[in-house]
Amino acid sequence: MTRNKLKPQGNPTPQNKAIPQGKLTTVAILTKPLTYLVTLILLFALWYIASVSLNQAMLPTPQETLTALAQLFDTHGLQTHLLASFNRVFLSILVSFILGVPLGLAIGYEPLLERFLSPLVYLLYPIPKIVFMPIIILFLGLGDMSKIFLIVFVLFFQVVVTTRDAVKKVPAETLDSFYALGGKRHQTYFHVLWPAALADVLTMLRQSVGMAMAVLFLAETYATDLGLGFLIIDFKGRVEYDKMYATILVMAVLGVAFFMVIDLLEWRLCRWRRNRNT
């Protein structure tokens, strides 16, 4: 290369030298499902060993559980319970996102809002929201509304705090660069703050799915006859452990499905994060 040529001369990073990115992606795509399958087989094997070793009704084998699962769809309308639980979690995540993100963006960017709302968020964030369940049921009744409200109540503050913190991480230089291009203050929300925070919020939501499912379980064990949580407690009361485990399995699959969908969203919407050399 001569010194005079006007060519970009940045050096590729060591990892790029070692494996071209295309090859790396192909290898990852091919090996990822295989890794999950092996892990799943291992988990079932452990479960089987534990069940056989313990030899008690309260821990059925995976085969007994899967047989019970098939029966549940036919005889107990599992799909109705699954749909009810799915709707509750889906709507809760959606509402938390729709309400929490704009508020988090505003608190992170507007000093006046931050001054007034941050102390409130600071005080409410660490309170275990689940203790409000009886009060929420008193006010909103036994229907879906109270359960959705409770999950939103738990997730909302996490979304607000994560979004606010993500906004605060945006370098001053990025904002100056936007203003220098002619960007107005109100445009900053859509063009800078939202895309800058999105990746962090999706990561947080993905990590919060487990908590949302736990709150859902608790909410569905309280004065209701619809939902996977209700079904688990109901089967426990009837000492039908194989069916109880089958329902737990369905609830776990639902949690994993939400996790994977948010993971996929993050992968699609935050493409720039997985394409970094530096």
Binding site: E173, S177, L181, K184, H191, A196, W272
Partner: peptide, 22 residues
Amino acid sequence: LQEYGLFPWLTVEKNILLGLKI
């Protein structure tokens, strides 16, 4: 700016056209 102030979430094309867009 010193660190260029590019927006990491936009492609090169979109980074360049952002000024016109806004």
